[in-house]
Amino acid sequence: MFRTLKPFGYFEPKTIEEAIGALSVHGAKAKVLAGGVDLVPRLRKRQAHPEYMINIQQIEELDGIIKETAEGLRIGALASLRSIELSPLVKKNYFVLHEAIHSIASIQVKTQGTAVGNLCVATPASDVAPALLVLDAKFRIVGPSGEKTVPAENFYLGVGQTVLQPNEIITEILLPKPQAKTGGAFLKLVRTAADIAKVNAAATLTMADGACKEARIAVGSVATTVLRVKKAEGVLKEQKLDLKVIETAARAAAEEVKPISDLRSTAEYRKETTRVLVKRALEKALERAKA
């Protein structure tokens, strides 16, 4: 109903310590601002009511750098979705992440929005999160008591809820080195191209000696959080992957999800197409693992 935003205090910390300090003082009354593409519309709709806005874009220790490390790949907290999408390193070694971000239509949203921001919104419809789940990503989190690393898989608690405390921020996304003979794929269903997912699915498969050594499948928009479907993964492990095994895994995935009906789709449709998307993502991932 509104066009303007309600007044709030504004703070631009220069260090992480300052940011954590400000967040510790204001607690849930404060919001962390990075790209703003999710937060600002929610402010306009009066769905968020922060008294203080902590803009972390000016923190010198934070950056948007995407670089290879001894352990794998490191993505800075301020990296825009667009910069990750366009990163040759991501395209080469973490194609499923590229594919997931590529599926987000709006260039403006990707230019302005950060991957970390997308994760912290904790929407079960995130396209980034399933890709990070199947890439076994970890998030480096800094808070008043120091630094910790949390696996992406353990990050989400529910719709809009994560393990992140109000006075903590994510500083980096860490991806392990890709294994040989690994392929990944991301797929989603939408109402129009520029839409959040009705259902999405990401998968990575690592093959060895013609059998599946490791399988990770994550789905979005079909439960209160994005989630790994581990029964489905279990179906694939150590198996020679033919269409039948893949179909069995896809069915298992559909059994594991608990979708709801809402404006974007119906529970029945989401369950059925979870099967279809998981099947197709696995087929694609397998093809890429073999290539």
Partner: peptide
Amino acid sequence: VESNNFTSYKMPGTMD
């Protein structure tokens, strides 16, 4: 009205 903006009411874009 639940479909009260372009987020919830989807009209075709270039790719559609």
